[in-house]
Amino acid sequence: MSETITFTIDGVKVQGAGGQTILQAAQDAGVYIPRLCAKEELSPFGSCRVCTVLVDGRPQTACTYPIAEDMIVESDSEQVAAIRRDIIDMLFVEGNHYCMFCETSGDCELQALAYRFGITAPKFPYMFPKREIDMSHPEIFIDRDRCILCARCVRASRDLDEKAVFQFVGRGPDKRIAVNAESRLVDTNIDVTDEAISICPVGALIRKKGSYAVPYGQRKYDHEPIGSDIEKARKAE
């Protein structure tokens, strides 16, 4: 059994297991730390930076930083919220996110985070990148306009589906998600039931059938902000 580590989040003493990241230990304790690239079933990646916290006063990604005895973590403060707000804002302007007709609207983690942080419009200028849509597969499509480069699909395809369908190509602002075959999704061995599709936090990887089938009022984030499930667990205790 791993050792118990005691540390502090926002002034509250929390116990976690050795080897856990701040994000994991906080979640077990009912403290929600926003995240996009992190997912329980995937290995930590640290790309989106939305989970940024202050560890002993320094910004760190909670999804990759291991807990340590007597560590002081600051998550629920205006300073940290401002950092996260800017990061979310940049993710919006870096892509082409048209929530008004996106079929993931209401179920999208990026949109839900924007609502949670009270972002009604980005403060940074839109970059309007030119990105390609891949509709070649009969059951799945990639809309790169909505991709936030979180690499969930890259890791899920490799680690959960054991296929390695996705990878990144390009650098900096030209970085984009690609597939491991020639150039089209239909040329890969992806299957409509693959975890890599359902794990996408936005509307970049979508199954073609069933779009808009869930009416307003029944979508995942229609009634409660993202993270409410984790926070409820703490309140229930």
């Binding site: 008004m100 007709f101 079929e103 499509f141 779009s211 808009y212």
Partner: peptide
């Protein structure tokens, strides 16, 4: 270029 099911929306 958009998927046909998006058009009504």
């Amino acid at each position: 270029g958009r998927p046909f099911w998006e058009v009504p929306v």
